[in-house]
Design a binder for these strands. Structure first.
Lengths: 162, 162
DNA sequence: CAATGATATATAGCGTGCTATATACATGCA
DNA sequence: TGCATGTATATAGCACGCTATATATCATTG
């Protein structure tokens, strides 16, 4: 019957995610960074010269999302796109000196956010929290995959209706 | 030193939130609804005729966000904005017949998403998960409040620097 | 009653993420 | 070689959420 949003996992997760984003924004805005750039920077700090395709494979984001974020990062002087030596369609993404210098302060900022968010939880509960979120992520990915297949089949055969 | 995104609460929460949104979108798109409309509908299903201000107070969203979503909902034939009888600045938001009819299927869809997401968790763990998320939300809100005050003070007095 | 300040809503502008589609280059096969 | 197909990136267009600001009305006070 009734639907209490504060008891709905989806609602609470969304709210929590927006608060995480706000807290991270507060801390990295002074560095000239924004939240969407963070995952890409994280990847490039550990492995530079990747193509956009490789970034897409490593981050759980769509190609178009990454392309747009890269454009903003180029505009902001964080990355350079250099032509790929073998493949004329591809580009290799390199960090600027400026972006390389931000690794320590930016990861410190992210750690501070996590620390603030998990402050009320003892270490064991923190690990449990991450583990549970991993399970939920897996369950949702399975659900999306299942749903996608159902919908694709349904258009060809209609005997699944009964 | 290293920063593993899959061990970072902020990253994982963001990922999980996007999956929740995708799963809900799959299920309510056939109803002609989108995720951002959901919290507003939930509120109006239980209490119609509210003003925008009252919605802002009840939902953890900014006024501008709600105003824009209401405009899209009006466009989609889900709500009507009627002038407030006493206050010429305000409007009362009413659901259309169409929107009222969507309560059962839409809340069913949301319940199905939560069920799919929490499927791997036994009931006790589900409750614990919600409880922990509540704690994290409180901690982040406290952090944002603290941060906001610090920044405001800092511009007036500089003796906090040492 | 007029001016001032507060309040309700709207708008501008941006970042993030998505789907769908266009474009440009690569590759493989007739 | 040339054409079809595939792949890497770009672009269009949208929803959602935010901050900052404009506008219109209310309420208060001189």
């Amino acid at each position: 019957m009734s639907f209490d949003k504060d008891q709905s996992a989806g609602y609470v997760v969304n709210h929590m995610a927006r608060l995480f984003a706000a807290a991270l924004t507060e801390r990295i805005k002074p560095l000239g960074l924004s939240t969407g750039q963070f995952p890409i920077l994280l990847q490039l700090w550990s492995e530079e010269g990747l193509t956009q395709k490789q970034l897409v494979e490593r981050l759980d984001l769509e190609q178009a999302t990454i392309a747009n974020t890269l454009t903003r990062m180029e505009r902001d002087g964080l990355i350079e796109r250099r032509p790929h030596p073998q493949d004329g369609r591809a580009q290799c993404i390199y960090l600027t000196v400026k972006a390389r210098a931000l690794e320590a302060p930016a990861t410190d900022a992210a750690r501070a956010v996590n620390e603030a968010a998990l402050a009320p939880l003892p270490p064991v509960a923190r690990k449990a929290f991450l583990r549970v979120m991993g399970q939920v992520i897996d369950a949702l990915q399975a659900d999306l995959k299942r749903k996608g297949m159902e919908d694709a089949e349904g258009s060809g055969r209609s005997d699944t209706a009964s």
